[in-house]
Amino acid sequence: MRRALRLHRIFISQHMKRLMEYKLDFTMGALGLFISQVIQLLFLGIIFSQIPNLKGWSFNEILFIYGFSLIPKGIDHLLFDNLWMIGYQIVNKGEFDKYLTRPINSLFYVTVENFQVDAFGELIMGIVLVAYSVVQLLSHIVWYRIFVLLLIVPFAVLIFTSLKIITASIAFWTKQSGHVIHMVYMVNDFAKYPVTIYNNVVKVIITYILPFAFTAYYPAGYFLRGQDGLFSVVGTILISVTLFGISLFVWNKGVKSYESAGS
């Protein structure tokens, strides 16, 4: 474990050096993500200029849920973005050989190899929104729940990462799975809004099948209104751990059936 952490630090510092060389790249990616969030908020602002609440949720509560959803998403994006490359090209081009020949776990190596600073565009926005809405809702906040919420964040990240590992692993059998990762990943956008606005089909999908609702709405609902404490908190932890277990299983199966590119 300690070795893994030390290696992770080395990878990040390596990446930082590369980053300093391409400052513009970093700014552009982060700025792009930031602007796209601002426009989404403008859209929410226009809606709330006409209605007092959305199915019982106030503007500030919606901002909190939206902002909180960006934090686990941003952390996963920052640390474990390289999994996309497994799906798009690493397996397909036979470059996965590299990861098998090193004396560290292949999954660990792949995930930490890249440090995607674009993610700061999402992270900063998420933190700003959460801070702003908490200040607005100050009198309703139950303070000990903040610690519960902080405890949940790593597990929420794990839900994102596990789903990416599972979908990326498909590439070991099909050579490419980038578009499957994309399809599954996009479902997370549903979790940015209260689950109560959706019909039952969507509810079941984002709760039990691709459980993105546990990365944002359920923890946020618990924090804001104390609703379904057990289901929201313990549920998030159980689901993320289970999903991570499944993802490790699928990954290991996949690595076994990996075949390098010819020649």
Binding site: Q50, L54, K55, H182, M183, V184, V187, F190, Y193, Y198
Partner: peptide, 29 residues
């Protein structure tokens, strides 16, 4: 074409989110 269809399903998700948001908006006005 398979990649294209997967990509499309991923992208069209945003339409359904909008659909449900507007449905909620119209029940709230």
């Amino acid at each position: 074409k398979v990649n294209f269809i997967f990509h499309l399903i991923g992208e069209i998700m945003s339409c359904f989110i909008m659909f449900f948001i507007w449905k909620a908006v119209f029940t709230s006005t």
